[in-house]
């Protein structure tokens, strides 16, 4: 047994036990800790096939940032009580879930069994197009910053939007929900008053009455 296969099998056992632990742990904090175990195992699997940069990113981003975010939310909300799995909103949901999971697994294994993977498994540190041997990180950087540079820039926009959205949604608003501010420039237009082919006067009158009520309150 080669060292590569041995490392794969050891890390595979770590990944599988960790993922089973995530699903079966009663306590959400324990589930998060099992998730860290799984993610470290996956990072080792990345290292086995020489994806060094992604293994480092896996540890930093997933285990270092995402799981800590989970733990912070658990701590903030205090949802650390065990859940009651005996409640079934849909009759027979959980047995059906196991049947569905087994069906997904069987389908995936059948596809893997039938698919022939052609190619030369081996060192990704192969000679590059210009002839010299490029390390994995250099190859990845070259691909991201030349072919995929547009996707990379869009990634930056996505992360910015996600951060802004998270801040807006998780912000604590004092008191009850505030009404939207009344902006004269918008409310003066009225909806459909300009360029409206509708000649029904009743609708316009009702809309004007609604505006007056809104102003009074």
């Amino acid at each position: 047994m080669s060292l590569q296969l041995f490392s794969f099998l050891v890390a595979g056992v770590v990944v599988l036990t960790g993922s089973l632990g995530v699903v079966m742990a009663k306590h959400p904090v324990h589930a998060a800790l099992f998730l860290i175990q799984t993610l470290f195992g996956v990072a080792v699997e990345f290292l086995v096939v020489e994806a060094h940069f992604l293994a480092a990113i896996q540890v930093i981003v997933y285990a270092g940032a995402i799981v800590i975010l989970f733990l912070f939310v658990i701590m903030l909300l205090g949802v650390d009580n065990a859940e009651d799995l005996s409640v079934e909103p849909i009759i027979g949901q959980r047995p059906l879930a196991f049947v569905g999971g087994a069906a997904i697994l069987g389908l995936l294994l059948a596809i893997i069994n039938s698919a022939g993977i052609t190619g030369v498994p081996g060192n990704v540190d192969a000679p590059g197009p210009t002839g010299e041997v490029l390390p994995n990180v250099n190859q990845l950087a070259e691909s991201i910053f030349t072919e995929q540079v547009f996707a990379f820039e869009v990634t930056g926009i996505l992360l910015t939007v996600a951060v802004v959205g998270a801040v807006v949604m998780a912000r604590r608003i004092p008191g009850a929900l505030q009404p939207l501010p009344d902006i004269p420039a918008i409310s003066g237009f009225g909806f459909g008053s300009t360029g409206d082919t509708d000649t029904d006067g009743d609708a316009d009158a009702a809309m004007a009455a609604g505006d007056e009520q809104g102003d009074d309150s």
Binding site: F8, F70, E83, R94, L96, F98
Partner: peptide, 27 residues
Amino acid sequence: PTYYLVLSALVFSIGAVGVLVRRNPLV
């Protein structure tokens, strides 16, 4: 690579069952 695909299928199925079975949104 088949080893990787089999491990991936196992982890994916476990995760799918977890989404369907658990009730806590965080889990």
